[in-house]
Design a protein around this nucleic acid. Structure first.
Lengths: 343, 343
DNA sequence: GATTAGCACTCCAAACGAGTGAGTGCTAAC
DNA sequence: GTTAGCACTCACTCGTTTGGAGTGCTAATC
């Protein structure tokens, strides 16, 4: 048995109706609401086939049909192929541009806007600092034995590291070290900093050689060790308005999952790696995470200098409006990438 | 009619039983579970009096009684008076101390621990930077016309401000300005920085006078303008486990309220101001915020150098365990203040 | 006068059953 | 291949019933 054109039309109609009502769809409803030109009985036969093919399922005998994960997957893949890249102007882009002097602020605004616009939940990861190019490093004396390293990278992402030292060191020397660091490191990424580069740095000093050497070692050790991805979620409550989460247990589990930033981090990291430069859609049970099995996740990554450095995702019910959301996200990411590269 | 000793015992018993069951308490239940030495009929008469006095209420005719806000208030006030300050050792304090090199980390850990320990929701405000003393200011050249000001204050709170300039300025000059700033400003708070201090700063320069003057102006203008309180919540889902929030509407409203950091900010600010150096308890409808009318909020402030700089709060159902929670919070804040002053 | 047993009454919540509606699968006719 | 018709299923709704927990009131008791 194959999925002919008529079955496809019925599948689309089911998905469409279920998107609107969140109720199982029956043959009579379909024949009334959609101009399919066939009787409910015929539709029933086709639905029976569609169920055997795994695209739809019945919550219980003698109820209407609901799209299965496989059904959504088929629909989404088809949609992604057909979708022409028409970049509608997003109304809130101008507003975003105003806030664009720091990447953190920009990302927060995007998260908030996107949640408001789509009525779904947004998830945004902070940029992967270690992959973006260093604009400036400055060491600051905080206490006798503590130094603060502030690193500004491309896109004006700012990250600071508190570093404990064995010996004391004054600000004057720190300034000198900072100066040399900037000369040598600007334009590199943190990942680029290897033993060669560090050796090179150390050689640039004559005075107070061994102290400087120690400082440089501990600074880079700290920087490399610190885990740096932050995850932010926006509009968590948005998703609670959908009837599929009326059940308190489900709602609670979902929110708990969204609170576990460590777990979300993994998901987002996977996105960045696997993502082929386009949006990625994970539907229901395809999700690794148990807590997200009733949701779909649409993610994409943003770039600085052509390098993927972070991700933006939208979490909604499985019957979410994939078409519009993907469009929306595509447009957005295009503008965001532009803005980021201007910073 | 007055609240005699027997009525008081009954009120306590009602509150206690309702704390455990979350169900309206009847006279028979009371006489069975508590050794009051009187019959249900007598209890009924007393309960009728208690209701007239406003300490308890009936959800509907012929149901048991539930404590009213006034009832809780009475109970709490009494408890606060009786409570002797016995500082039980909190098991997680040692763990906290390890993370105590930066105030932000410390506060996050406190929030997480407290939520886990109490099974309520925690709310923590970042320290009021402008009130805490400056340890270090450093200006960093980020772009041709952009400077980053990094301020480290007491307690190792780190705050950075991106500042746009009209003219360009090099790192060498910024270092010099930073040096002078540190000499003049260390030990002051941001609020202390007035026109006199700024004038004094400007006078310390001979070279490039007007550029430096402009930079200093715009730096302090930015710093003073930026709103700086951040609010963090932990264990949001904890509160959903209590039956009073089984209703989706209520749960949703509460979570939405907790997401509105701007609104929470106001509450916390009020706390810092009104708080008489002790814990403050706001019960149900006493709450300004509509979304918190079914909750109680226990707050206290933490201090640096004797100055209130931020707040820690716990949000639970109205029938929360005030006694233990208050104890817990009191012990905690004592240790936290100690740790903060060591930083 | 305070306390208590007894009783009638109220109300909620759970259990039950009938009825309804939307749905299905199957079969026979078109 | 399509469709009308029919028997059947299942979830939901709604009214009714029942039981339990509770109250208030009254009269008897201490």
């Amino acid at each position: 048995m194959e999925l002919n054109e008529r079955k496809l039309r019925i599948l689309k109609a089911i998905i469409n109706d279920y998107f609107e009502t969140a109720e199982p769809v029956g043959s009579r409803t379909l024949s009334r609401h959609y101009d399919l030109g066939i009787s409910p009985a015929t539709i029933r036969n086709e639905m029976s086939d569609l169920e055997e093919l795994g695209f739809i399922m019945q919550p219980h005998t003698s109820s209407g049909r609901v799209p299965s994960d496989k059904g959504y997957r088929f629909y989404v893949d088809m949609m992604l192929q057909l979708q022409q890249a028409e970049f509608t102007k997003l109304v809130y882009l101008d507003e975003l541009k105003k806030s664009a002097s720091r990447i953190e602020d920009l990302l927060r605004n995007i998260g908030e806007h996107l949640a408001k616009e789509t009525h779904y939940t947004t998830i945004v990861s902070s940029p992967h600092y270690k992959k973006s190019k260093i604009k400036n490093i400055q060491l600051i004396e905080v206490e006798e034995h503590a130094v603060l390293a502030v690193i500004v990278t491309n896109g004006n992402a700012i990250k600071d590291y508190m570093i404990n030292l064995d010996q004391s060191i004054n600000q004057d020397l720190l300034n000198k070290i900072s100066l040399v660091m900037n000369n040598k490191l600007q334009g590199l990424t943190i990942n680029d900093i290897n033993l060669d580069v560090i050796g090179d740095l150390k050689n640039a000093y004559s005075e107070g050689r061994e102290v400087v050497s120690k400082v440089i070692d501990v600074v880079f050790k700290t920087i490399q060790e610190v885990d740096e991805t932050d995850i932010y979620t926006y509009g968590t409550t948005n998703i609670l308005q959908y009837p599929e989460f009326n059940d308190m247990t489900k709602a609670s589990e979902l929110i708990r999952t969204l609170e576990e930033k460590d777990i979300l981090k993994d998901i987002v990291n996977t996105t960045i790696e696997s993502n082929d430069g386009n949006v990625k859609i994970v539907i229901g049970g395809e999700n690794e995470l148990e807590g997200l099995k009733d949701c779909s996740l649409i993610t994409t990554s943003y770039h600085i200098n052509g390098e993927k450095v972070g991700a933006i995702g939208i979490i909604g019910p499985k019957r979410m409006d994939y078409d519009n959301t993907v469009q929306n996200l595509r447009c957005l990411i295009k503008s965001v990438d532009e803005m980021l590269n201007k910073l």
